[in-house]
């Protein structure tokens, strides 16, 4: 399988803060790849660079061999590269079904489709995906009234509604109760296997990322310090030092 995402020598500075320095990584098509690192190591900055929230200072980011580092956020999303947020972002005053309906990719997208009707078939798909994440019963409630964990699940369902090729997940299990975490892991694996969506996951919960990812990249102080299979990462002295501090 070829690479779906290629990050090549990316630099991103915020003034004097070196948020990302010479980051190169490759995500294989159809894989689940992990991105770990202590707080403030530049993981979310890298996500923001990839989806175009801010321009990068140097380097190149290719999605399906197309340079995306200069594209604005909606353009990157339209190519099929979608992200979820660490703090959930949902449309709080809309109900879950509407959250889903607006997340679907429109069949036509131009000036004349601004007033196009939303096809009824979407309701079915929305309901199916909501039941996939276990929110079917709450579909008519306002999304803002859901609990934080449920909002995370809703955000995942919204991303799936868009039928992306690749999904960047920023801490999908943060703030979710431990019993539900297994459910999320299973769903993410299902998303990867059945929907064929490549996943790049930021995660602090080592148990989750070790059981989920096939390949893991580790950042510290804005630099890539290690990458490899989960077993290798677990034993890597540099990773252990970064998390626990060098004695």
């Amino acid at each position: 399988m070829g690479a779906i995402l290629q990050v090549d020598q990316v630099y991103k500075y915020f003034g004097g803060v070196k948020a990302n320095e010479n980051i190169s990584m490759t995500v294989t098509q159809g894989s689940i790849t992990g991105l770990i690192g202590p707080n403030g190591s530049g993981k979310t900055t890298l996500f923001n660079s990839i989806v175009g929230t801010h321009p990068i200072d140097k380097g190149s980011i290719k999605f399906e061999d197309k340079e995306v580092s200069a594209l604005p956020v909606p353009a990157v999303a339209k190519l099929g590269l979608l992200r979820t947020f660490q703090q959930t972002r949902i449309y709080g005053k809309l109900n879950c079904i509407d959250n889903m309906r607006i997340s679907a990719k429109p069949s036509r997208d131009n000036l004349f489709s601004v007033f196009s009707a939303i096809p009824n078939e979407l309701n079915d798909k929305a309901e199916h995906l909501l039941s996939f994440v276990g929110l079917y019963q709450k579909r008519k409630l306002r999304a803002g009234d859901l609990s934080f964990g449920q909002q995370k699940l809703l955000e995942l369902a919204m991303a799936l509604m868009n039928e992306p090729k690749m999904l960047l997940l920023d801490e999908p299990t943060a703030g979710i109760n431990p019993t539900l975490i297994n459910g999320i892991i299973n769903r993410l694996i299902k998303v990867n296997e059945e929907f064929g969506i490549t996943l790049l996951v930021i995660e602090h919960n080592m148990r989750v990322i070790m059981s989920l990812a096939q390949h893991i990249f580790c950042l510290a102080h804005g630099q890539l310090i290690a990458n490899g299979k989960p077993e290798q990462i677990k034993k890597d002295q540099r990773v252990i030092d970064a998390y626990l501090g060098v004695q």
Partner: peptide, 23 residues
């Protein structure tokens, strides 16, 4: 009732999210 209405509401609730979803 069209896409227009839903997108307007989406912008009200979270414009960054709407952009991140490709709108």
């Amino acid at each position: 009732t069209t896409r227009f209405g839903l997108v307007l509401n989406a912008i009200r609730d979270n414009e960054d999210k709407a952009e991140a979803m490709g709108i």
